[in-house]
């Protein structure tokens, strides 16, 4: 099941915990993967770990020119682009009343606008091929909101609307567009929390543990697979029951 041999995938933010896990899962299913990120050493290390069928594609997603170039670079490196996983994201948390305009703009630029631009660049080839997969990594916060994350929650909720509109436009072309919405996953982003904060969050999770990046990757792998052809415009929540939506 979930055989991606002969398919190519670009994973943004592959230098992070969830992105690397997604790249491993797609690669493990046979796909050729393009590893996007901003920090080269972790990308090179991941490429070395994966061996064949892996390409390092660094780009600054807040730079419009780099955004326009990335899908083309992926197509050049891998021959074409079948699967786009928009995973890269940043946080600039603060109470909204204290949130600077820059913190708002930066989070919307990377977490929402960059997804739109990259997807626009990627779907041309998918439309021609009459096959494509766009999987956007959202967040439980996009559905529930979270104090201190107005910018992040707005961007992640925006991702859901974007994905549904694109799903409607592209369904007739064999292209699906879906969202995977992680809950509380053990990554560098959550390592910043202290033990008390973690304990408080765990009381809200019926599964009583943090998720593992590989559990997000498994959801992405499913949505990227030929088996998920009839699933589009959906949000798959992977959150241990933290929010049952």
């Amino acid at each position: 099941m979930f055989d991606l041999h002969g398919k190519t995938a670009l994973v943004t933010g592959a230098s992070g915990g969830i992105g690397a896990a997604i790249a491993r899962a797609l690669h493990g299913a046979g796909a050729t993967v393009g590893l996007h990120g901003t920090r080269l050493p972790p990308l090179e290390a991941l490429k070395a770990e994966l061996g064949d069928r892996a390409h390092v594609l660094p780009a600054d997603l807040s730079d419009p020119q780099a955004l326009a170039a990335l899908p083309k670079q992926a197509e050049e490196a891998m021959g074409r682009l079948d699967i786009l996983v928009n995973n890269a994201g940043i946080t600039r948390d603060n109470l909204f009343i204290r949130m600077s305009d820059d913190d708002w703009d930066d989070v919307l630029a990377v977490n929402l606008t960059a997804v739109a631009r990259l997807t626009k660049g990627a779907i041309r080839g998918m439309m021609k091929a009459r096959w494509g997969r766009v999987v956007n990594v959202g967040s439980v916060v996009g559905a529930t909101g979270n104090a201190g994350q107005a910018n992040y929650a707005a961007a992640k909720a925006g991702l859901v609307g974007l994905s549904k509109a694109l799903a409607a436009e592209l369904a007739g072309r064999g292209i699906t567009v879906n969202v995977v919405a992680p809950g509380f996953i053990a990554t560098a982003m959550t390592d910043k929390l202290n033990d008390d904060q973690k304990a408080a969050i765990l009381t809200q999770i019926p599964a009583a543990r943090m998720g593992d990046p590989s559990e997000i990757a498994a959801a992405v792998l499913y949505l990227a697979s030929p088996e998920a052809a009839y699933v589009t415009g959906a949000t798959l929540h992977v959150n241990g029951g933290m929010a049952m939506l």
Binding site: R124, M127, K128, E169, L170, G172, R173
Partner: peptide, 11 residues
Amino acid sequence: ADSLDTVELVM
């Protein structure tokens, strides 16, 4: 044609 077909024709 639908509207997306016309975009594809132009491409």
